[in-house]
Write a protein that binds this DNA or RNA. Sequence first.
DNA 1: CTGTTAGCGCGTTCAT
DNA 2: ATGAACGCGCTAACAG
Lengths: 342, 342
Amino acid sequence: MAQGVTTIKDIARQLNVATSTVSRALSGHRSIGLGMRLKVQQLAQEMSYHPNRNAIAFKQRKTGIIGLLVPNLSEHFFSEAISAVENQAMQHQYQVLIGQSHDEEERERRIIAAMTQQRVDGLIVSLAKHTLHYDHFQVLQHYQIPVVFFDRVPNIPDVHKVHFNMESGTKQAIRFLLDRGHRRIALLNGPECMPSTVERTQVYRDCLSQQRIKMDMGLVASTDLTRATTFHAMEMLLAQKPRPTAVVTINDYVALDVIEYIKQHGLVLNKDLTVISYANLPITNYLESPPLASVEQFPYRQGEAAAELLMDLVLNKTGNPVPHQQVMIEGQLVVHGKQFWL
Amino acid sequence: MAQGVTTIKDIARQLNVATSTVSRALSGHRSIGLGMRLKVQQLAQEMSYHPNRNAIAFKQRKTGIIGLLVPNLSEHFFSEAISAVENQAMQHQYQVLIGQSHDEEERERRIIAAMTQQRVDGLIVSLAKHTLHYDHFQVLQHYQIPVVFFDRVPNIPDVHKVHFNMESGTKQAIRFLLDRGHRRIALLNGPECMPSTVERTQVYRDCLSQQRIKMDMGLVASTDLTRATTFHAMEMLLAQKPRPTAVVTINDYVALDVIEYIKQHGLVLNKDLTVISYANLPITNYLESPPLASVEQFPYRQGEAAAELLMDLVLNKTGNPVPHQQVMIEGQLVVHGKQFWL
DNA sequence: CTGTTAGCGCGTTCAT
DNA sequence: ATGAACGCGCTAACAG
């Protein structure tokens, strides 16, 4: 027993029975006598037998593993989602293999290849921020590995996806500002290659035109989420005449940079310039200078929904192809505590 | 090609060679002719062949996977560490399987069993907060799966562990307070079953006695990290005569609760009661009411060190047993921005 | 340089 | 109610 790890063969030999008997006894096959079943189970326990799931996976062509590919494991938004995915997977006796692309397409490609070779039963993906071509996802189709995109989803049809409802979320933010009298509302958006960026601008445009406000493209800027480009964009936005009185930023990280910029330039936050962002940090309640409000995006729910959908696909025993699903998670505008300037 | 997934057998058949030739050609075995190698590699590409790592793992008894078990995937401290582990693993062509115990010993047990059955090549573990018995780790030894404990480590010898240097970290905090004249310093510690709790108290005691200050056990309290018990502990601490002028809390979550308690009771933070904590949130720089200082614990470095150590063990080809390592990560006291009351 | 063969651990026929 | 035999995809002897 010390020369290696216990297998059903070892148990069979000890008991002078066939391996198939052991196999059946362990999996509770009804054709095995009670006495035999008990003997086998007890010996298995004693020899601390743990079935080799690897061998089983190999034979059954089911690994019991799903993959999870996100840009960055340490970002709060994603780590919440990951937690949800793990919880959901565990309920189905599944395990989760992780990978982070660091927003590099090349790394994304390598991880997808690795997941494929590992033969994961399914994959949840949030795209790298500049991913434009989806050809590296072809392999997954070839290997019949179902994919659920989540949060950062591709703008192509015929894929399963779970994402934030940009339309209702953005409407809440813009209308909130309009209701408070703002007419010069700036939009500090993300990289233009991201579908969500395009949609955010679209909704912004619609909200304004509904109020018969003509859209000023000088009030729309992009950042690649780095501080430098955010500062640059702010410079541009604040140079517009008349100056915007509010700005909607793509996320909390950018909002923090914007707030920093505002302070550096002697402006008063939420008085001279009101800031609203899309929440992806857990901190807004404790901030010294928070945005006036944030659109909560419920990362846990998103991860949960993605995992539920994926598990449905993975466990789908009918073999019938499942129509492509698109789940939208509703955002919710949260107004933060201290509102000195209202 | 549509009836399934490409295997070396398919490639071999197409080329009228043996599977072993294909296998060798693909793995760059030198005994294969250049022409053959190229032909094989090209065809593999065309058939979008991806080696079945599952089958390889099965044969080689090496999965190329390491497990990572932490209490909670979404806590900032752990998600930083996870990111480090994934980065480190990827450099070695390894993948990471995750599990969260939610601080429940039973769940911890189940995940360890699952990891064992998956035959991970190694495991990084941060213990559930009340785990006292380590018998569920025995299996790993039986299966020769190396384990590196990290952050929440067991207080037994003969294990590999990476953790924060409690002694130097705590000394920095206490001495900082002593230097500023505090003599009634409270300690709001964690559950007493955690080794780090015991050590923290020990260091606290030593620092005080070095200054010839007699230790008052009324100034030491425990919390199980929930708000309720934290409040309860605070009540007790503030009832002491004379009242403490400073409190060292086990982490930022508890510190936030303490700060909340202070406000509710009409005290002025860092004036009536100075708060220092051990950092595990990324937010202290942005807080409206931050602790006066935090002992930074560098979760990324801890995860990195744990992964490096584990990879050493996993890749250790000598077969010689490696002596048990204990890596300590030095903390660093960080004093926060606004210090009105100094 | 390349082919043949065996076997990793397991579930699953097909026998008995 | 149990046993014998097979094969999943791949690598590694061993043979030429």
